[in-house]
Nucleic acid binder design. Structure first.
Lengths: 343, 343
DNA sequence: ATAACGCGTGGTAACGTTCCCACGAAGGTC
DNA sequence: GACCTTCGTGGGAACGTTACCACGCGTTAT
């Protein structure tokens, strides 16, 4: 038997004032007698009053809720993004409605509609569907996350700084004596592949290495995709120590497994650099050296951009957050002890 | 410039009926002329009408939203739980407000209050604070998750079946020739430790092994905790192959690292069985054999129990979901090839 | 002395929905 | 033909909040 929740009218009656006055006191307005305010506040505490956000949202047009639509909360990167968004939202006393789209355009659209029905004040989305080009007509302030956001011209977005990340990785590789890494990248259709490849090529030119001499293997962005790509790579004629820069930690770990499968050793025979910074990289043997995307910061920043968007401060910009290197043990140091090349 | 969203009145006007009739048509009531209904539906589609859930919630007292408060969405187990809850809720066209408590009672309480203000219909919580004993007075239907839920007598809860899980693990150990595993468990204060220990002891007696002869090490539920415990274990006088049953995958992986650190090998010198089923276990070398908790099922089931609770079908039960064994490579098979014991 | 003003407060409408009641027309029963 | 029922529809209230306007009182300026 759940009893009725106290409303502002209950508070007003108990304090012996009108509900307008009670509302003013609760809202902390200034044109009110101190004594009255205190009486109202005391009454509110006494009856256990708690503001009904549904009613507030209805009256003010602001629900105090934000939507978050990401592919899979189970994926460590997206969990990290969610965590950042959650924390930043909680700070601002805003609730987050979370949905997982599973990379399924149909689910994405249905979740977006659910968000609109729930009257969220705005939404943070990792867009999977191209069909969202009518995003501005959707009637919601949006902030997009990820490189796929670049398809949408006029919408704010937050992502990781691929260029900086690749530069960081390549510089680190050079410092360890690896000058022209083999690349394991994603499938042809994906925008992220192009972004990654472009960044590597641009940086290679700066370092005076011909991008054309870079070996590239591709595969799905999965453990198996990385494993298969590595296996193909190991089937090629070899000329000594192999250094692999994978576009994704899962692929990097898959590559590591392929190396072991072939009776080779990492980092002695093959050096591997990953990209993502998933926690699992700390548990592989050897530990995976990788470039970590700032998932948490991205999530937090997305919430902030969304606030701007909602307040009508449309800076409409793309924000790229810097990545950082996690140096573990999957890279051989060829610079110090120039070992004899196997092959 | 965002324009006003169409309301049911806009629909009614366009269809040339009253808003009552429009509401009836939209709700799919039966006492209405087919022709009228179709006219209203067409009008709704034409103006792009979408029901305002805030208003519905306010009128009906049901917001169509559920709360989920878990320690950390970044923790793979909790992410899995969240995913299950998210999917089940989406199926029922219900939205989920997600919060992370970070094992902090203050945050937990503040989030719970936020949930109440948002007028969610119910909440799923992994209780961290003991101070929640006035849970029934809180004014929200609750379903609790995890073994800590047992402190609360009259509240429904969902968790994993520790007894069954331990039995599964112990049986598997026996089938591989390990009869009295060493236990690495959590710190003394934790309820989960007792549950785990009890289950092991009960099952040992059934198998005619004296629980008193079981070696127990404890530590924090972390990588480092497991590593330290294993190190202590390896410092003891050894008598051959060591078999470890860790109460937690992170500890198991930490133990694996300690083994490598001491120049020993897993599974040749030390067998390790984990408990949790986190994805990282697939990437260790060797792959971690472990018992997987059904996080996703737990989340889904919690949502279902919460629906029951809300509908006033208070079965008020504890549900224990079965775990399953993931057999990878961290266990030596002592039964087939009885190897010479090192020591 | 009167007008003008500021302050604290109360009354009321509005947000969008659903539910209950009432009304008119049509059909059936005596 | 007068009554009752059924059906389709319209009118209005209510959910809890906030914004706006108006009122009465005391103070200050003319």
């Amino acid at each position: 038997m759940r009893k009725r929740r106290p409303t502002i009218i209950d508070v007003a009656e108990r304090a012996g004032v009108s509900k307008s006055t009670a509302a003013r006191a609760l809202a902390g307005a200034e044109s009110i007698l101190d004594e009255t305010r205190e009486r109202v506040l005391a009454a509110a505490k006494a009856v256990g009053y708690e503001r009904n956000h549904l009613a507030v949202g209805m009256r003010s047009g602001r629900s105090g809720m934000l939507g978050l639509v990401i592919p899979d909360i189970t994926n460590p990167f997206w969990a990290d993004v969610a965590r950042g968004a959650l924390d930043r939202a909680a700070e601002a006393d805003v609730s987050l409605l979370v949905f997982s789209s599973d990379w399924d355009p149909a689910k994405e659209e249905s979740h977006l509609r659910a968000l609109r029905r729930a009257r969220v004040d705005g939404a943070i989305v990792n867009p999977v569907s191209d069909a969202l080009d009518d995003l501005d007509k959707f009637g919601l302030p949006f902030v997009l996350i990820g490189s796929s956001a670049e398809r949408f011209a006029d919408v704010s977005s937050v992502g990781s700084d691929i260029t900086q990340a690749v530069e960081l990785g390549l510089d680190h590789l050079v410092s360890k004596g690896h000058h022209a890494p083999t690349l394991i990248v994603g499938p042809k259709s994906r925008l992220a592949r192009t972004r990654f490849l472009n960044a590597v090529q641009r940086h290679s030119i700066k370092r005076d290495v011909d991008p054309a001499q870079l070996i590239v293997e591709d595969g799905e962005y999965t453990l198996e995709g990385g494993r298969l790509a590595m296996l193909r790579l190991l089937d090629r004629p070899r000329l000594g120590h192999i250094c692999v820069f994978a576009a994704n930690d899962m692929m990097a770990i898959g590559a590591m497994m392929a190396v072991r499968e072939r009776g080779l050793r990492c980092p002695e025979d093959v050096s591997i650099l990953g990209f993502d910074g998933i926690p699992s990289g700390a548990f592989t043997f050897p530990g995976l050296t990788t470039i970590a995307k700032p998932g948490r910061d991205i999530g937090a920043r997305a919430v902030e951009s969304l606030f701007d968007e909602i307040e009508g401060r449309p800076e409409h910009g793309r924000v790229y957050m810097p990545c950082r290197l996690i140096d573990r043990a999957s890279l051989a140091d060829l610079s110090r002890e120039p070992r004899k090349l196997a092959g």
